[in-house]
Amino acid sequence: MNVDWASFTPWSALAGGALIGLAASVFALANGRVAGISGLLGSLLQRGGEGRGEKVAFVLGLLLAPLLWGLFAALPTLHFETGSLGLIVAGLLVGIGTRYGSGCTSGHGVCGIARLSPRSLVATLCFMASGFACVFVLRHLLGG
């Protein structure tokens, strides 16, 4: 593995992480609910859910933040090493995993671990181990 030190940006990564933590904390304090993205999206797709306004605002903030950032700085170039089919399959697997795991990395990894939830710690360890295993198999065993 080679680290591209010219592109290493610890301060912006630290600022991004702090903003994610701040947004999750404010959402929890203001609404009494965890800011898990899969749960927010899932409840927006159901009829008659409570708190739709703040959920829509949170999701819109996620979608509009890169556009706002693009007004002040260049957005990073996205590069995918797979085609459309690979992205669709990956998205479906992530969606299925979040339903079986009763949450996603934001709900378990950010909010759950911050609340010292044992279930969230186990879920996050499973997410991470699965990701490590997939990268190992795809890059080192299959040569992709």
Rank of each mutant, 00 (worst) to 15 (best):
V3I: 15
D4S: 02
D4I: 01
A6W: 15
A6H: 15
T9R: 14
T9L: 13
P10E: 15
P10N: 07
W11C: 10
A13T: 11
A13C: 14
L14D: 11
L14N: 03
A15N: 07
A15P: 05
G16C: 08
G16S: 12
G16D: 08
A18M: 12
L19R: 05
L19M: 10
I20C: 03
G21M: 14
G21T: 03
L22V: 13
L22A: 05
A23C: 08
A23P: 06
A23S: 15
A24I: 10
A24D: 05
S25R: 10
S25Q: 15
V26W: 09
V26D: 09
A28S: 04
L29R: 15
A30N: 11
A30F: 12
N31H: 05
R33T: 12
R33L: 05
V34Y: 00
G36F: 01
I37R: 10
S38W: 06
S38E: 08
S38R: 09
G39W: 06
G39E: 06
L41R: 03
G42T: 04
G42H: 09
G42F: 08
S43R: 02
L44S: 06
L44T: 04
L45Y: 05
L45Q: 07
E50W: 04
E50P: 01
R52Q: 06
R52G: 02
R52A: 04
G53A: 07
K55S: 00
K55L: 00
A57H: 05
F58V: 07
G61T: 08
G61N: 04
L62K: 02
L64H: 03
L64D: 05
A65P: 06
P66R: 00
P66N: 00
P66M: 00
L68E: 11
L71W: 14
F72C: 14
A73Q: 14
A74N: 03
A74C: 04
A74R: 05
L75W: 10
T77W: 03
L78F: 12
H79Q: 08
H79I: 02
F80M: 08
F80N: 06
T82N: 06
G83D: 15
S84H: 05
S84Y: 12
S84R: 10
G86D: 09
G86P: 04
L87N: 07
I88S: 03
I88A: 08
A90L: 15
L92E: 01
L92K: 04
L93V: 11
V94R: 02
I96E: 13
G97E: 13
G97W: 04
T98F: 13
T98S: 13
Y100W: 14
S102T: 09
S102R: 10
G103A: 10
G103K: 00
T105V: 12
S106W: 01
G107W: 00
H108I: 06
H108A: 07
H108T: 07
G109W: 02
G109V: 01
V110M: 02
R115K: 11
L116A: 13
S117I: 02
S117W: 03
P118N: 10
R119I: 07
R119H: 10
L121Q: 10
V122D: 02
L125G: 07
C126W: 04
C126I: 11
A129L: 01
A129Y: 01
S130Y: 04
S130P: 07
F132D: 08
V135F: 09
V135T: 14
H140A: 10
L141V: 12
G143H: 11
G143F: 11
G144V: 10
G144C: 10
